[in-house]
């Protein structure tokens, strides 16, 4: 299919982009890699009046090591992220999860910020930033603001980024020593969306898990933290059976939907199984 007509602007700075969004009104949309947007345009499920292309705004690109955290420009491609030495060294969970996003062609074009701002509950990266307590910088006509990952995802395809705002960058604190991470994705076919995905980071000390952070993909309208599993894991010995036991509460606090891939009951079952696998993998079992 061929998209409906729209206008196109390619601003050079964040300020210009914000101004263009405001000028374009309600139906203006940000595009960067366009890997989520293009199928919507082609199926005419989206018909924006103006597309504001942020792919070439310098400020929105690049990956920076801040010492205790890493800042990633929102328009960095998945390929940039997963091949960045900074990310691979300090935010391995993100590198690993990004490598599971879609396929190579899409990873070459799609952007980290785009995947977050799209707010797709089946997207892999929202769970990662949630698990890692990232902070997201948003620019708008009233200036800039910092939003914590836990406040960023609001509902299906809805995030804290307002109509005339742009996600500029994402800052992720480093985990430090003793932490292991894993992104475990369960899908029906290799290039399919996650039926359930689990981003896990666990700190192991003396053969015991001392801290755990776990976030789930596609288990509610937004990514959710498996808080009761996180608590249950505290102090647990690093063993498959103990981890499995602690993972039994993985579906608590989720709002699993039913679709062709999984009904509620099966999806909740998967949450328990995949959480246990992700934690085991992160803990090196």
């Amino acid at each position: 299919m061929i998209p409906s007509k729209f206008d196109y602007v390619r601003p050079k700075s964040v300020d210009e982009a914000v101004a263009a969004l405001k000028a374009g009104g309600e139906d203006s949309k940000v595009i960067a890699g366009g890997q989520s947007m293009l199928p919507l345009l082609r199926l005419r499920l989206a018909a924006p009046s103006v597309l504001v292309d942020c792919a070439r705004i310098d400020e929105m690109k690049g990956i920076k090591d801040n010492g205790d955290s890493v800042t990633i420009g929102a328009a960095s491609t998945h390929w940039d992220v997963m091949n960045s030495d900074i990310v691979k060294t300090h935010v391995k969970l993100l590198a690993d999860a990004t490598a599971t996003v879609a396929d190579p062609q899409i990873r070459h074009r799609g952007t980290f910020g785009g995947a977050l701002a799209h707010g797709d509950p089946a997207g892999d990266l929202p769970a990662v930033v949630l698990a890692l307590d990232a902070t997201l910088e948003i620019a708008g006509s009233k200036g800039r603001r910092q939003v914590a990952a836990k406040d960023f995802f609001l509902d299906y395809f809805t995030t804290a980024v307002g109509p005339d705002e742009i996600l500029v960058s994402i800052t992720i604190p480093k985990l430090g020593k003793g932490w292991g991470t894993c992104y475990e994705k369960f899908n029906r076919s290799a290039n399919g969306w996650a039926v359930v995905g689990v981003a896990a980071a666990v700190k192991v000390d003396g053969g015991k898990i001392t801290e755990a952070r776990i976030a789930l993909t596609n288990c509610a309208a937004i990514p959710v933290r498996a808080s009761s599993v996180e608590s249950a894991l505290k102090g647990v010995a690093v063993s498959a059976s103990e981890i499995e036991k602690a993972s039994q509460s993985a579906a608590d606090g989720t709002r699993a939907t039913s679709d062709l891939a999984a009904d509620k009951e099966y999806r909740e079952h998967l949450m328990r199984v995949i959480t246990a696998r992700a934690v085991s993998c992160a803990a090196g079992v």
């Binding site: 196109y8 390619r10 595009i31 366009g34 890997q35 293009l38 199928p39 082609r42 597309l51 292309d53 792919a55 390929w79 190579p104 062609q105 899409i106 070459h108 074009r109």
Partner: peptide
């Protein structure tokens, strides 16, 4: 529809010519 765009594979049905 895969092509190489600036040397990397991309799906040319999911890129606008203006991009």
């Amino acid at each position: 529809c895969t092509i190489l765009l600036d040397g990397r594979s991309a799906k040319s049905c999911s890129v606008l010519a203006v991009q």
